[in-house]
Amino acid sequence: MPTRTYAGVEVAVDEQGFFLDPSRWDEAMAPEIAAAEGVAELTDRHWQVVKFMRHEYEEKGTGPSVRALGKTSGVPIKELYALFPGGPAKLAAKIAGIPKPRGCI
């Protein structure tokens, strides 16, 4: 099983780098995960989405799709793509330390 180290903590991840145990995630890890994925800095808007993703995962057992994220997070879809290039739901989930949402490729 692959592992990664973020904020000095070794965590188990799947082959795409998603946490296998989301309870191991800590906010201090997010900037390192983001940087590794090409997001240089986490702004307040990034954090709004990351925290929303974690909340949705805790409530529903999965992160929201891009469409649901755009409708319910308070961040419009166009901005989501600017904040999280290449796939907002997938990238935000990875930074938030939750499994890849259903429907993400």
Rank of each mutant, 00 (worst) to 15 (best):
G61M: 02
E27S: 13
A89H: 01
T62D: 15
H55D: 15
Y6G: 06
G61K: 02
R24S: 12
R45W: 09
G63E: 02
P64H: 12
T43E: 03
K60P: 00
E79L: 11
D21Y: 12
L20T: 10
T62Q: 15
S23Q: 12
D26M: 10
G17R: 06
T72S: 13
K60F: 13
F52N: 05
E15M: 14
V11H: 11
I77K: 15
K60V: 01
S23T: 14
E59V: 13
L91M: 14
F19E: 01
T5R: 14
G87I: 04
G70I: 08
H55W: 15
V39Y: 05
I33H: 07
R45Q: 14
E27H: 09
D21N: 11
Q48P: 05
L83I: 08
A7H: 11
R45D: 15
G86W: 08
R45Y: 11
V39C: 02
V39T: 07
T72H: 14
G97D: 03
Y6C: 05
A89R: 01
G38F: 03
G61L: 02
I77T: 14
K51T: 09
G70D: 07
G70C: 06
A7K: 01
I33F: 11
A36D: 13
G74A: 03
P31R: 00
V50Y: 04
A96K: 04
Y81T: 14
W47E: 02
M29P: 00
V66P: 00
D26T: 15
A12T: 14
P101L: 07
H46K: 02
R54H: 03
K90N: 11
I77G: 10
A12K: 15
E79T: 11
V9T: 14
T43Q: 02
R102E: 13
V50P: 06
K100A: 10
L83Q: 08
F84R: 00
I105F: 13
I77Q: 15
P31D: 01
L42F: 09
A82G: 02
R24K: 15
A35E: 10
R54M: 01
G38Q: 04
E37I: 05
K90L: 09
F84W: 04
P101N: 07
R67P: 00
K90M: 12
S23P: 03
I95D: 03
K100D: 05
Y6A: 05
E32I: 10
V66G: 08
K94L: 06
L42I: 10
K60I: 00
F52E: 07
A68R: 14
V13Q: 07
A7F: 09
W47F: 04
K78V: 06
G8H: 09
A68P: 00
R24E: 13
T62V: 15
P22I: 06
L91P: 08
L80R: 05
P2E: 03
A30S: 11
K78F: 00
E59T: 12
P31W: 06
A68F: 01
M53D: 04
D26P: 00
R102D: 13
T43Y: 05
L69G: 01
W47P: 01
C104A: 12
M1D: 10
T62H: 15
E59N: 09
E58I: 01
W47T: 01
E56S: 10
M53E: 07
Y81Q: 13
A92G: 05
A92H: 03
